[in-house]
């Protein structure tokens, strides 16, 4: 409900943002598309011309591709599950009356402020390192053989690091949502004979649905692009055990200098990301409308 003039004002004020984002999206995408169809390898500057879909077949048929897609999904889903489940538990815990709640909140939120390369470096070196890391020390103390986390369980280790970074975000959003639940609603449920678990399942969880949606949406946006943590910790290895789609593209472009194939990979990644985005937005847009 508005007048013609406010509608045109709205269009005018919306346009800079829309145009900038459109340009930011379309220009690199168009260039990527162009490169993806060409022979373009920095090591062989003399090989030029169109390669039709050779780059695509090369990228998609490369043995690492399927694994990279799976790894990407495992990483995203793994981090989402850990952060949402632990986030709910921690939020429930902090929401109880406790002493020093302010400090607890500050401690819990802190990992969110840590830049990804720092997080990756300290986890890799000071915790997961099989000779000097704290985990190795702890294993020694218990008389067990130290585990080479990044060597033996690379993807799980990366999931742990990323989940540590995103857990505060999930916890805080869920906590805010939990605090907005009226105690009358819970008391009514208690009067109706619902036990603690039933109260959680039938009252709290539905109340948190929106917050969980938001956490999933925002984290997916950031998690699909996770790359620096892998570069710093495992370089996608051992072998391709922790190679995700973004990392595979990076490897083509900057390690094998094959810009053409990397571009094809970029286009594939964009398409896959859009598929994920489409389903996510469908599922979530509905939930956000209410």
């Amino acid at each position: 409900m508005a007048t013609q003039s406010s509608r045109s004002a709205a269009r005018l004020m919306l346009s800079p943002t829309v145009i900038l984002l459109l340009v930011w999206m379309i220009v690199p995408l168009a260039m990527t598309l162009w490169f993806s169809l060409k022979r373009y390898n920095l090591l062989y500057p003399d090989r030029t011309g169109f390669n039709d879909f050779g780059n695509y077949t090369r990228f998609v048929l490369s043995p690492a591709f399927g694994g990279a897609v799976v790894n990407t999904l495992i990483l995203v889903v793994g981090v989402l599950v850990i952060t949402v489940v632990l986030g709910i538990l921690i939020a429930l815990l902090i929401d109880q009356p406790i002493w020093g709640q302010g400090i607890v909140r500050i401690l819990v939120i802190s990992p969110f402020f840590i830049m990804p390369p720092v997080a990756a470096l300290i986890w890799k070196n000071m915790f997961m390192n099989p000779t000097n890391g704290l985990f190795a020390e702890a294993a020694k103390l218990l008389g067990m053989a130290p585990i080479d986390f990044l060597g033996q369980a690379p993807l799980a280790s990366i999931i742990l690091i990323v989940a540590w970074q995103w857990l505060p975000f999930a916890t805080l959003i869920l906590l805010t949502a939990l605090q907005s639940l009226s105690s009358e609603e819970l008391e009514a449920a208690e009067m109706d004979g619902a036990g603690a678990i039933q109260r959680f399942w039938y009252i709290m969880l539905p109340h948190l649905a929106r917050a969980i949606t938001v956490v999933v949406l925002i984290q997916t946006i950031f998690l699909l692009g996770i790359f620096g943590e892998i570069l710093v910790t495992t370089n996608g290895g051992p072998g391709t055990a922790s190679t995700t789609l973004p990392y595979l593209i990076y490897k083509e472009a900057l390690l094998d200098f094959d810009v053409g194939t990397a571009a094809a990979g970029g286009v594939v990644a964009v398409i896959l990301a859009n598929i994920v985005a489409f389903f996510l937005m469908r599922a979530i847009g509905k939930n956000l409308d209410a």
């Binding site: 919306l14 984002l21 690199p28 946006i221 950031f222 699909l224 990392y247 472009a253 990644a269």
Partner: peptide, 30 residues
């Protein structure tokens, strides 16, 4: 978007967010 919403407002917002889902590595070279 908040005060002069149209039928497309939600889609527009979701589109904006989806631009963030593009893997940055894919467009690094361009």
């Amino acid at each position: 978007m908040a005060f002069v919403p149209g039928r497309k407002t939600k889609d527009l917002l979701m589109w904006m967010l989806s631009t963030k889902m593009m893997p940055a590595v894919g467009v690094l070279v361009p």
